[in-house]
């Protein structure tokens, strides 16, 4: 059961990862396009320029969850490296419950009013010709932190599985994934 949950999270994470990767590429092309339009065609669209940071925001906000499952967040590892996989898993479980979840919950609930205020007054860009629906991008804050909270449970399950010795060893998830597939 727990193994199934872990696999589900892994699959989901790959979907998010692919989507965000595309969003990032769109952002890069967006910036490049804006440069060319301004320089070669003397034609800037403020909406297009704002789209740049909208895409950027989506990448960074939702990417936090993808990085969590894929173990891409930085640790200070001089002690951590010497711990056994079980001890590492325990640190991750305790850390997620006491460190990650409270922060994510605080930001999630703190941002609800912020988004609602923006929605109520139908906030738009303050720049001439900018993007409308400012509350959509502000709404990404509670959405992404909800995803982070949801992902945190997957991360806990992943580490419980290590504790239960349900996985052979704690190998990097991406490798794990490809190993499984190559079988």
């Amino acid at each position: 059961m727990l193994i199934e949950i872990e696999k589900f999270y892994r699959r989901l994470n790959r979907v998010w990862g692919k989507m965000l990767s595309v969003v990032f590429l769109l952002m890069a092309v967006n910036v490049f396009f804006d440069v060319i339009m301004r320089y070669s065609f003397h034609n800037s669209s403020v909406a297009m320029q704002e789209l740049e940071w909208h895409l950027f925001s989506i990448v960074i906000l939702f990417g936090v969850s993808v990085s969590l499952i894929d173990e891409a967040h930085v640790r200070v590892d001089f002690l951590y490296d010497r711990f056994s996989p079980r001890k590492k898993a325990l640190i991750n479980i305790v850390g997620t419950v006491f460190f990650l979840l409270p922060l994510a919950l605080l930001i999630l609930f703190g941002s609800l009013d912020f988004v609602q205020d923006s929605y109520k007054i139908k906030e738009i860009s303050e720049n001439p010709g900018g993007l409308p629906y400012r509350y959509l991008i502000k709404g990404m804050i509670p959405l992404s932190f909800s995803l982070l909270i949801f992902t945190a449970f997957g991360y806990i399950v992943q580490n419980i599985n290590i504790l239960r010795n349900a996985r052979p060893q704690n190998i990097a998830p991406q490798q794990h994934e490809t190993l499984e597939e190559s079988k």
Partner: peptide, 14 residues
């Protein structure tokens, strides 16, 4: 002012 300039063909940039 940006909106006014944009109407006059200025390439208003952020």
């Amino acid at each position: 002012a940006g909106e006014v300039f944009a109407k006059l063909g200025v390439n208003v940039t952020n």
